[in-house]
């Protein structure tokens, strides 16, 4: 009986997580277009619903009813596989992400995470690496020069940011003496990691921008020079898959930044519910992502390589060494 309840709870949590992640891109696209509009002294969507609130729904209906076009020369299997490969990993990763300690509903304690992996951080980085294959396959399978260029850039970009990103979080792991995200947040109950690890956070955040493929590092889909990059040939629901995956990764990077460096659900000064604190912090980072997108131009991709290898990597190494020395 207890096993059934436990299993049911896990299934319920996963279903809830999937529903939230699938629906969250709707308000996020609206928010992104609104913020973009106001930064450029426009209004953004205004016509559909109150201040364009129903615009994402209209866009969704449009995407779902569009022709699902596959180019004649495309590798059909890879072309169909790529959007799924891009969409699934961000969803899988959220299984290992804790959103809070636990709440008690009807007398039973319900933890606000699906599982507490003791190597959660490793799991997150391992799984999120798979997402890049979706982008690479998608660009390759479309058999179009823009798409191939987009995926080539992704290949080069991925290596140069994943390594500094991995090194950047080692400082956090050293401080918490654990790779479990839950323990990392618990270790920040008094002082957030950003105080001890500003350099680590900087490297993580810059690499995270590249990971989420947002401006200034959105080389894979660079609208200006590559049409739409790796998803040039995608339309309809498959394109929507890529978009949802992009927003899920943006969200994931924000969540990771909050958990690793900004104390997770630990609040300061104002006593708010921990979950609310968590959501507020994540919302702030999502805003920062959007804000960056409409402030900075895109880096050339040799510049990204230079930043990745010549700045971020030495910085993250130095960060590890200094943290280690301070630890001793």
């Amino acid at each position: 009986m207890e096993l059934v309840v436990a299993l049911g709870l896990i299934v319920f949590k996963v279903a809830l997580l999937i529903a939230i992640l699938l629906l969250l891109p709707l308000p996020l696209t609206w928010l992104e277009r609104k913020i973009a509009g106001h930064i450029q002294q426009r209004m953004g969507p205004m016509r559909v619903g109150w201040h364009g609130l129903l615009q994402p729904v209209a866009d969704g209906v449009k995407l779902l009813t569009k022709e699902d076009h596959i180019p004649a020369e495309a590798d059909r299997f890879l072309f169909k596989l790529a959007p799924i490969l891009a969409l699934a990993p961000p969803f899988v990763v959220f299984v290992a992400i804790p959103f809070g300690e636990s709440v008690s509903v009807l007398g039973t304690k319900i933890t606000l995470y699906v599982s507490n992996l003791n190597v959660a951080l490793l799991f997150v980085f391992a799984v999120i690496g798979i997402e890049v294959y979706g982008v690479i396959f998608g660009g390759w399978a479309a058999n179009s020069k823009y798409a191939v260029l987009g995926s080539l850039r992704t290949c080069a970009q991925m290596i140069s940011y994943e390594i500094p990103m991995g090194f950047a979080v080692i400082g956090v792991v050293m401080l918490a003496q654990s790779m479990s995200l839950l323990d990392i947040v618990r270790a920040q109950a008094n002082v957030w990691n950003i105080v001890y690890q500003p350099v680590g956070f900087f490297v993580f955040f810059v690499a995270g921008l590249a990971e989420a493929q947002r401006i200034p590092f959105d080389l894979a889909e660079a609208e200006g020079d590559l049409g739409a990059g790796f998803h040039t040939e995608y339309s309809g629901i498959r394109f929507a898959f890529f978009m949802v995956s992009e927003y899920a990764i943006m969200l994931l990077t924000s969540v990771l930044a909050v958990i690793l460096f900004f104390g997770g659900w630990n609040g300061v000064l104002v006593p708010l519910p921990p979950l609310l604190w968590f959501v507020l912090k994540v919302a702030f980072f999502v805003y920062v992502f959007i804000w960056f997108r409409f402030t900075f131009p895109r880096y050339r991709y040799d510049q990204l390589m230079a930043i990745g290898w010549k700045v971020l990597l030495p910085l993250s190494m130095a960060n590890i060494i200094i943290t280690g020395v301070a630890f001793l």
Binding site: G37, H38, I39, Q41, R42, M43, W291, F294, T295
Partner: peptide, 21 residues
């Protein structure tokens, strides 16, 4: 320089839009 750019766009975000509807 990056901070200046961010401050500028942040200021623009709260300025009135010039759109004529």
């Amino acid at each position: 320089d990056l901070t200046n750019a961010l401050a500028l766009t942040f200021g623009y975000m709260f300025s009135r839009p010039v759109t004529m509807q």
